[in-house]
Write a protein that binds this DNA or RNA. Structure first.
Lengths: 214, 214
DNA sequence: GCAAACTTTAATCACTTGTTTAAATCTTTT
DNA sequence: AAAAGATTTAAACAAGTGATTAAAGTTTGC
């Protein structure tokens, strides 16, 4: 009689554990998160964690893969849209990341700091989700360079600039706020302004330079 | 007397522990580093850690402060040099950070990820070491904007761009290498190229825009 | 309604981890 | 050389931690 479906999926025990783990792992990292904290945060008995996910590590890997997928999946679509210009793609990417990260600012530093030591091979996972090298965006860049529409720049450098300018301020948030003496609200305003500015800056960077002397 | 000084400072037990802790904390974070690992890495008995530093946390705070100091101290000098141009300061800063981080690539993500949760107030520490807001560099920027020598840009945005473009690739190193299928050597070449390019990009960003249509 | 399967609980195990203690060894002072 | 102090060691403690177990509760299919 489908009594299971009465429970909303989001409030099922399994999902509650995942949500709690998601939150704590992102906040405190793998080693800093204790299974009892997850259980307590999810409002469940400790043994259930192992019942549903076998082990802390299995649960972690699951959540980690979801993070990486979520973090990268949007990019793939945007970069391979054959109906948008380079500039439009840049605006969309920056806009999406800023919006997402304003809601979940802990994700980048969590993923990147765990990725450093994690024995599990996430390379495969990323590789599958991201074929940036062969994306339509990269093709557009190369064409632009050939045409002289945009300045000669290595596509990897361009992508790095895009992501650096967008993501790094979230990672450096505590230092930024301290150094410049601003609060969280001012930081958000700051990032919303960057959402508009970064595409303009990138445009300047890739604009072809007419090299005549003075 | 002064028989203590016979031992080279670098090989004293206390220094060996600090060095080992430095390495492991940067690599695995606070929670991920075990006191026994530090002892083993330093080649000492476990109890010595507590004998010299009272506790794991005390040792951590000490090392953390040193990292932050090292990380920021150079910036202060560069930004307040009254004999260099804006462009020269940018070149020096980028150059120094790239060189430093190529040798110690783990530091930024370690410091930033620990800074997030750390109960200790590092704000004071940073505040003292960094008075960026009132630096000579900031004065130069504001003058440049007033003169029309450089484009109207919020100095905080400019600083963020500088640090983002320089530091973030080191943080995202594992993803960068995976996505673009390059190895550590190619990554270093990539960063050396950025060392030259970032100042040029910044120059483009702050160059005054003559807004006539087409 | 009832047996089988699924879900949840409390208690416990085995191991890890930060810290301490008391004794041993080395160094310095007298 | 002996006393005093500094350094180092092995052993152990107490709390924390990931995982398991066996039993109780709940739902599902017939």
């Amino acid at each position: 009689m489908a009594k299971k479906e009465v429970k909303a999926i989001d409030s099922s025990t399994e999902e509650r554990i995942k949500l709690a783990a998601h939150k704590l792992f992102a906040q405190k990292g793998y080693a800093g998160t204790k299974t009892r904290d997850i259980a307590s945060e999810a409002g469940i008995n400790l043994a259930l964690l192992n019942y549903y996910f076998r082990s802390k590590e299995k649960l972690f890997e699951l959540i980690m893969r979801e993070h990486i997928q979520q973090f990268f999946q949007g990019m793939f679509q945007v970069l391979n849209d054959e109906n948008t210009s380079i500039q439009q793609k840049i605006e969309t990417l920056v806009g999406r990341y800023v919006d997402t990260l304003m809601l979940q600012p802990d994700i980048p530093i969590f993923v990147l700091s765990e990725l450093r030591n994690s024995p599990m091979n996430l390379a495969d996972n990323i590789q599958k989700n991201m074929q940036i090298k062969n994306s339509y965006f990269m093709k557009q860049i190369k064409e632009g360079i050939a045409n002289g529409t945009i300045d000669n720049i290595h596509p990897v450098q361009l992508m790095s600039n895009l992501i650096s300018l967008t993501v790094f301020p979230f990672i450096a948030n505590p230092i930024l706020k301290t150094i410049h003496g601003i609060d969280q609200e001012q930081f958000n305003t700051f990032m919303l302004e960057r959402k508009k500015l970064i595409p303009l800056w990138i445009a300047e960077i890739i604009k072809p330079k007419t090299t005549f002397n003075k």
